[in-house]
Write a protein that binds this DNA or RNA. Structure first.
Length: 591
RNA sequence: GGUGGCAUAGCUCAGCUGGAUAGAGCACCUGCCUUCUAAGCAGGCGGUCCUAGGUUCGAAUCCUAGUGCCAUCACCA
């Protein structure tokens, strides 16, 4: 439509003013003016001198005469508002109605894929609210990119080695009395997390003790026996000490079992897991290679660095003096590994904005090393989730636990649903499944509707809303449409044309909103932003509810109108479902 | 101190590549359930778009400087 108009406007300018126009600027007509699409006339003043109203009027007249769909026009200041005919909207809707998976593009064969990394937890503690944001974002962005027409692989790199896990292991050895998830009934990740906290408590006591014996705080922190022991344990692990490796395997397995449960509840999954214990040695040979090429340089003590001062950054270490790898080394190696493992073109890292600098450096290094895909690496950087009390800290127990939070959301959904009491005839297990759908819908929407890069302040005291711009509001609209469709026992598969009906303004608004969906998906994929999908869906639902409340659907006197409105409802519900799927949110048949 | 991000209604957030009188939700106030589910709809109240300059026919949006909050600048991850 826009394309046709653009051509017509260009042609009109040629005929009226004998001028070539490069582009025509369109926007949706604001609600308070008459019309459907607006051409910004100001932009033409570059080509033709004169009064914008006059120019707008001439172009308007030309379009009305030469473009069938343009029924009428009006000019307000420098804005040319065009009224588009019903027949355009009706035939546009008909083709949308016929399109299965409208707006969603299937990945092409033989095209290179995108890998999305998210979650990537440490194995010493349970997942918390921060991980929830990470998981929801990563999962959703992967879904969105897939819907935009690309093959996607979801992955995570599990931080299963290092001093942090040794701390949990040591505390368990010391104070655990052989506790297991089975013996305690605790989820494995919770049990291990408890020992991580236990370590910290005991460690702090030792520090206090040392300070009272006259050490400085700094000395005490470095000399506390527990820490020294944990470090010794790490060395043993690295040398392959059987007992330590066994303990490590056992405790990690506890954690994985716990994580799997949380991931399942949250509704996220992965195509491939990478483990740091397998990758932490990667990248060293690449560093050697880069050293030879002169990209890196060696300091006197043997450590290897890269100088990025010309790029406005610092010098960065890529290999320790003892030859061991740092985080950066490993990330270089892992990235290369992934491009070997899969036929990739892009790689998205879902990691908090505290690591902006790290990724900037990583991408730059890979580019300097000459990997042509380095320009297609993207750090999906998101803001922290803070509590009113400040930052969440696992060691201090000031975290909102992921499992607890999901449970609470389900409980809230249960309470509200029971108060409303609309679920007569539902079996108990159906009800429970529904509470989960609604509770998680509320949580996921709450987190995904905000721009990833902004920080979220989460107040556990104030529960997440279930009314207004929320997940349940949108789910509710879906359920209401399903109710209508259940009652629509007539045949509504026949095609309605502009011969049969004329459109209500609410129907036009609704069709206009529907038309945006494909573009929104592409935009969301390009910007890595589920928030765009959320906002679109909310607008769609608002339009629909207004339509629903204003005009009768099943109660229509006119058969053709009844059919058309049922079709509209059906398509809106499908788009709600598809859009929410991109956010990882499911929709209920009733609520 | 250097670098990066953020700043819009009392609160939580939209605002696409600059375009009309800056939009939603929550909260507060008014109406609407004998009609398709009121987790809804219609309306009201509420704004120096952090500040000051600049570019432009036109700036919440772009540029510069400043202020505030956050992050980051380790042979930690």
């Amino acid at each position: 439509m826009q394309h046709n108009l653009e051509l017509a406007v260009k042609k009109g300018f040629k005929e009226i003013y004998d001028k070539e126009i490069d582009t025509v600027e369109f926007q949706a007509t604001r609600k308070d003016f008459e019309g459907d699409i607006t051409i910004v006339v100001f932009a033409f003043l570059r080509y033709v001198k004169g009064n914008p109203v006059e120019i707008g009027t001439k172009i308007g007249e030309y379009l009305k005469l030469n473009v069938a769909e343009v029924e009428d026009f009006n000019v307000v200041k420098g804005f040319l508002n065009l009224v588009i005919s019903d027949s355009f909207f009706i035939s546009s809707f008909n083709s949308i109605l016929k399109t299965d998976k409208f707006g969603i593009i299937e990945p092409k064969e033989n095209e290179k894929a995108v890998m999305v990394e998210y979650s990537s937890p440490n194995t010493n503690k349970p997942l918390h609210l921060g991980h929830i944001r990470n998981n929801l974002l990563g999962y959703s962005v992967a879904e969105i990119i897939a819907a935009s027409g690309k093959k996607v692989y979801k992955t995570q790199i599990i931080n299963d080695r290092g001093i942090h896990i040794c701390k949990s292991m040591l505390a368990w050895q010391r104070f655990g009395n052989g506790e297991t998830p089975e013996s305690t009934g605790l989820k494995g990740d919770k049990l291990v997390g408890n020992y991580y906290v236990k370590f910290d408590q005991e460690y702090k006591q030792e520090i206090a003790q040392l300070i009272s014996e006259g050490k400085t705080e700094e000395e005490a922190k470095k000399q506390a026996p527990l820490l020294l022991e944990a470090q010794a344990m790490l060395l043993k692990w690295e040398s392959g000490d059987a007992e330590i490796v066994n303990l490590w395997k056992t405790m990690n397995q506890w954690v994985y079992t716990g994580f799997d449960e949380t991931y399942k509840e949250l509704g996220v999954d992965f195509d491939k897991n990478y483990y740091e214990s397998n990758t932490y040695l990667l990248g060293k040979d690449v560093v050697a290679d880069g050293l030879e090429k002169g990209i890196f340089y060696k300091k006197e003590d043997g450590s290897v660095w890269i100088d990025l001062t010309e790029e406005g950054l610092d010098e960065k270490i890529v290999l320790r003096s003892d030859g061991t790898a740092v985080y950066m080394t490993q990330d270089i190696g892992t990235a290369i590994e992934r491009f070997k493992d899969y036929d990739l073109n892009e790689l998205v890292y879902t990691v908090g904005n505290e690591q902006d600098y790290h990724f900037k450096v990583l991408f730059l290094i890979l580019e300097k090393l000459g990997f042509d895909w380095a320009k297609n690496l993207y750090h999906l950087s998101y803001g922290m989730v803070d509590l009113p009390s400040g930052k969440m800290k696992s060691r201090e127990g000031t975290v909102v636990d992921a499992d607890d939070l999901m449970l609470e959301m389900t409980n809230t959904a249960r309470t509200i649903s029971q108060e409303l009491g609309k679920l007569d005839g539902y079996a108990d297990d159906e009800k429970e499944a529904l509470y989960k759908t609604i509770g998680l819908g509320a949580l996921k929407y709450y987190i995904l509707k905000v721009d990833p890069k902004k920080r979220i302040l989460f107040d556990p005291e104030e529960s997440v809303d279930f009314a207004g711009n929320t997940g349940p509001f949108i789910q509710y609209t879906y359920a209401r449409i399903q109710s209508i469709l259940r009652k629509a026992t007539f045949d509504y598969t026949v095609e309605i044309t502009s011969e049969d009906i004329s459109l209500h303004s609410k129907e036009i608004s609704l069709i206009k909103q529907i038309q945006l969906f494909p573009e929104v998906i592409q935009n969301a994929a390009k910007n890595h932003s589920p928030a765009l999908i959320a906002n679109f869906t909310y607008d769609l639902v608002k339009e629909y509810n207004s339509f629903y409340q204003t005009v009768p659907i099943l109660g229509c006197e006119n058969e053709n109108e009844k059919i058309f409105r049922t079709q509209l409802s059906l398509k809106v519900s499908i788009i709600i479902k598809d859009a929410f799927k991109l956010l990882g949110i499911s929709v209920p048949e009733r609520m």
